[in-house]
């Protein structure tokens, strides 16, 4: 019994790491630029396809291709901020919602055209391997993904707290007008925020590739969890999103194990509702960091 419980928690934490990469991106964009990016899942998908093609064409390991997918998506993020999001920032919420939603539709349908709806998998030597500890098993691919996800999240935290640009980003997220008065150039800060958020989504895609098939609609599987995590962990709070993602992974896994295999999401949403009832602004309270 204890073994089953431990295994369920391990499974939950491991997938929670991936949720974290996606949700940190969403929360960072919301915190800094104040828009909700509905297309975040689609950038995970792009990251997956980048790794898929590098693996099949050049034999590059998906984990190594992180070094390609992250910079590529960073650039895409900066371009999207510069050419699209910048133009709707002064307007009300509606154009912003339509913009990212349209972007999501566009990317999904373009990839359906370009890549077809087929599932693509990359089979690496460690895809089906697992470490065994007693009766427990820890899949290698997922452990690698989890560890790298935690390292990237940690690196982001250090960036936000120690570098000037990171501090400027936090300042802009706390109060945009005052930050501007202090000489912070919002366009530059926003572009970097978008870039980082998309790079994280790309990283999630590459890390998923050894154990999850890529297909044009794959982003929508992960983005739902990401949105729940973002709300649960207080909108705009990076650490909150990280903790909430891990929590949700575990809640989902325990729900499947002990309530029913179709109840994983029910447990997740119960958790969300209870949290919102008790702490309306999320687990981290009103703080945004």
């Amino acid at each position: 019994m204890l073994e089953i419980l431990a295994q369920a928690v391990i499974n939950g934490l491991l997938i929670g790491g991936i949720y974290a990469l996606v949700s940190i991106g969403v929360t960072l964009i919301f915190g800094v630029v104040k828009i909700v990016n509905f297309a975040q899942g689609e950038f995970v998908m792009i990251g997956m396809y980048i790794s898929f093609f590098l693996a099949t064409q050049f034999g590059i390991d998906p984990i190594v291709s992180l070094a390609v997918s992250m910079p590529v998506l960073f650039v895409i993020g900066v371009l999207i901020q510069h050419f699209l999001i910048r133009r709707v920032l002064g307007l009300n919420d509606l154009p912003q919602i339509f913009l990212t939603f349209a972007l999501s539709l566009l990317i999904v349908n373009l990839s359906l055209m370009l890549f077809t709806a087929n599932y693509r998998t990359v089979h690496t030597w460690y895809s089906d391997e697992a470490f065994r500890v007693g009766g427990l098993y820890i899949p290698v691919a997922k452990l690698v993904a989890f560890v790298l996800a935690m390292i990237l999240s940690g690196a982001l935290w250090i960036f936000l707290h120690t570098t000037d640009l990171g501090k400027a980003m936090r300042a802009a997220s706390q109060n945009r007008d005052v930050a501007q008065l202090m000489g912070i150039n919002p366009n530059r800060v926003f572009a970097v925020a978008l870039g980082i958020a998309l790079a994280l989504a790309g990283a999630a895609g590459s890390l998923l590739m050894p154990f999850y098939p890529a297909y044009p609609l794959v982003g929508q599987v992960f983005v739902l969890m990401a949105f729940v995590a973002v709300v649960l962990g207080t909108l705009g709070n990076v650490i909150g999103a990280l903790i909430a993602s891990l929590l949700m992974g575990v809640a989902e896994s325990l729900g499947i194990q002990f309530i029913g295999a179709d109840s994983g999401l029910i447990v997740v949403f119960m958790l969300l509702l209870i949290t919102l009832a008790l702490r309306p602004s999320g687990l981290a309270g009103g703080r945004r960091r």
Binding site: A8, L14, I18, V221, D262, G264
Partner: peptide, 12 residues
């Protein structure tokens, strides 16, 4: 056991 289609992880 029924499960909801389109899960992220088959381990549980």
């Amino acid at each position: 056991e029924p499960y909801s289609a389109g899960f992220t992880d088959a381990s549980p």
